[in-house]
């Protein structure tokens, strides 16, 4: 217990004594983590947007003109048993005309010239959450197009596929940027701890001489690295939050970008905590790296 207290006190007195280097370490870690955080924010929000867009994914089954009512209701029964279909709405020919009028009032005269109602009846199908990928939509469509009474199936395939591609790229970019920046902050913390180790090499030697174990000597430096990293993580959250609020203000709340109505959101708490933990881990690793090198140089 006393040993633990001693080691913790050593780490914090180190941090206090080397104020400038501490500041540099925290600032650089914060900056690198913030860069990564921007990507993470972008990614998480984009994913949120995409899943809300995917809620709107609908497949429309146009029916043969003049299909008898009995067959329509048979078809409806049949579709209800399909596993991927979450909900089903029947749009009659009359309803289709009404919808068209409501949606395009200025084009309503087009229908008048045609006399008989040219719009087919249809089923509008909303898919269950697990069936919204482009492959499963395609599979469903292929199965249904051969059902008697179904004239045509319409769904926006490219749109769905583009979304998946975009999210894939963002994911890749986030991973790459994250890896590079993590390496950068490990290196920075490693060199800062190395400077400390170098400055204190006489003290370290004395500690060895009086019978301190390697662990006893190393732990304060590992703690120091971890604390610096965690502080960097906290600062990066503050930076991100500030930047995020500024960005939201610029966009005008609630962030309407590309006609997306869902507001942008900051990290949920568990991701914020994760950022701090990542900072802590980076600091710890940086410290460990320089201790390893220092130990090897001494041997």
């Amino acid at each position: 217990m006393r040993v633990v207290a001693y080691l913790v006190r050593e780490a914090f007195s180190n941090i206090r004594i080397n104020r400038t280097t501490t500041l540099i370490a925290v600032a650089t870690t914060a900056f690198t983590l913030a860069c990564f955080g921007v990507f993470l924010l972008l990614y998480l929000n984009l994913r949120g947007v995409i899943s809300s867009l995917q809620d709107d994914i609908q497949v429309v089954l146009y029916l043969d003109d003049g299909l008898p009512a009995q067959q329509v209701s048979d078809l409806q029964q049949r579709l209800k048993t399909e596993p991927g279909i979450a909900s089903l709405a029947y749009v009659s020919k009359d309803q289709a005309v009404a919808d068209f009028r409501a949606q395009f009032p200025s084009e309503a005269h087009l229908l008048q010239g045609l006399g008989e109602n040219p719009l087919p009846a249809s089923f509008v199908v909303t898919l269950g959450p697990r069936f919204r990928s482009s492959e499963s939509i395609k599979r469903l469509a292929d199965r249904m197009k051969d059902i008697p009474g179904v004239a045509q199936i319409q769904y926006s395939r490219e749109w769905v596929e583009n979304l998946a591609t975009v999210i894939g790229y963002v994911e890749l970019a986030a991973i790459a940027v994250g890896a590079i920046l993590s390496a950068a902050s490990v290196t920075i913390i490693a060199s800062i701890i190395r400077l400390t180790l170098y400055a204190r090499r006489d003290e370290i030697e004395i500690m060895h001489l009086i019978g301190a174990t390697g662990a006893f000597i190393r732990i304060p430096y590992l703690l120091e690295g971890a604390v610096l990293g965690a502080l960097g993580g906290l600062l990066s959250l503050a930076l991100l939050r500030g930047g995020f609020e500024f960005f939201k203000l610029q966009l005008g709340a609630p962030g309407r970008l590309l006609g997306i109505s869902s507001g942008f959101s900051f990290f949920p708490d568990h991701i914020s905590l994760l950022m701090v933990l990542v900072g802590l881990l980076l600091g710890f690793t940086g410290s460990g790296v320089s201790l390893l090198r220092f130990g090897r140089a001494k041997a």
């Binding site: 003290e203 030697e205 004395i206 009086i210 301190a212």
Partner: peptide
Amino acid sequence: RLLPKKNVFENVALPLVV
């Protein structure tokens, strides 16, 4: 080979602390 940042008591105590 004394630690300059610690006082006399702390220096002498070090072999016991470790």
